[in-house]
């Protein structure tokens, strides 16, 4: 890995101006993804993980805005970059895969049209070459008979195949960074495994950096190098996958791991986190998790600072726990 990380977020704040007030969806997020590294960004609905992804690729529209902070891609600042500059990066150097492939695909255009358009938007190549590169890309993601499938429409593909097409489009320009937002959540397990295999292989062969946004810790366990856990707009804990999953220090991470059914004794009650995620308009002051946390006390009413309890680990908690979560 070179010294300059592929992606670096510093104290990113993305807010939405609503009638009910300013909604702080992403609240001071700092993270980095090195070259060829896979970072799993884990959180539940409303934690701000998707908005973080959208901020990176510049898809935050009013009433949303990036209020402050930095987004550096290969050392270059993206916040405040003019739209034409951003367009040159987007799709070519940074690609995004969405949960719903129909957010990427145009339902009324054939697959070849959409893929060739993506190539020719960034490179001056002939139609024939664009077509042959599109065909190769479909083959790489495991679509059978890519030649014929090129002239099909999105609705003629199954959900898993559509997601492969979306991934093929993301890979067309061999981007340095792929932001993937829950790309396998809607898929069946066997199809999910196929997609993960494709992504894993291509990322390791090409040194692509991946920011993998998901609610599923088990997928992160199998795919990522590092993991960052997000709660109520903040990253509460991050570190190497083994370190965080085997020795989670934040009580939210411990609750998440504890509530995975396969970790519990069959038929026994699951470990559960009481309550629910607070509304982003009405977050408790200090540590946002304190209202659901068994270890919380008066100290937690002030914002916990970022600490580095171990090399490569970051944590926001006054009362870190130690050891594996009991099964």
């Amino acid at each position: 890995m070179s010294d300059v990380p592929t992606l670096e977020l510093r104290d990113l704040n993305t807010v939405f101006d609503t009638r009910a007030g300013v909604l702080r969806a992403v609240d001071g997020v700092t993270l980095s993804v090195g070259r060829g590294e896979v970072l799993g960004l884990v959180g539940e609905s409303g934690s701000g993980k998707s908005v973080t992804g959208f901020s990176i690729i510049g898809l935050i529209d009013p009433p949303g805005r990036i209020a402050s902070g930095r987004i550096r891609f290969q050392g270059r600042e993206l916040v405040g970059l003019a739209e034409p500059e951003l367009r040159r990066l987007r799709g070519r150097h940074i690609a995004m895969i969405f949960q719903d492939p129909m957010m990427t695909l145009n339902p009324v255009l054939r697959i070849d049209t959409q893929m060739m358009e993506t190539i020719q938007a960034h490179e001056r190549v002939s139609g024939a070459e664009a077509r042959s590169r599109s065909r190769d890309a479909l083959g790489q993601v495991g679509i059978p008979s890519p030649d014929e499938r090129l002239s099909a429409y999105p609705h003629q593909f199954s959900g898993g195949m559509r997601q492969r097409v979306a991934i093929a489009i993301a890979l067309l320009h061999n981007p340095a960074l792929i932001v993937a937002d829950e790309p396998t959540t809607a898929l069946d397990v066997t199809i999910q495994a196929q997609i993960l295999a494709v992504v894993q292989k291509l990322a390791s062969e090409r040194g692509t950096s991946l920011l993998w946004i998901t609610h599923d810790l088990s997928v992160v366990a199998g795919l990522a190098d590092r993991v960052a856990v997000m709660y109520a707009g903040r990253i509460v804990e991050s570190g190497a996958v083994d370190a965080v999953l085997d020795n989670p220090m934040h009580h939210y991470t411990r609750g998440l791991i504890g509530s995975v059914p396969s970790r519990n004794r069959r038929g026994h009650k699951l470990l559960q986190i009481p309550g629910m995620t607070p509304s982003p308009l009405d977050r408790p002051a200090g540590c946002a998790f304190r209202t659901r946390c068994a270890a919380a006390d008066a100290a937690c009413e002030t914002e916990p600072a970022l600490t580095r309890p171990e090399p490569g680990r970051e944590l926001r908690c006054f009362h870190p726990a130690h050891g594996a979560v009991a099964a």
Partner: peptide
């Protein structure tokens, strides 16, 4: 099916066994 369920315990696994849809 059982082989392809991601689990917390399997780290940096190689995905992909069953082909087709």
């Amino acid at each position: 099916l059982l082989a392809e369920v991601p689990r917390l315990e399997t780290r940096k696994s190689r995905f992909g066994a069953i082909q087709g849809e």
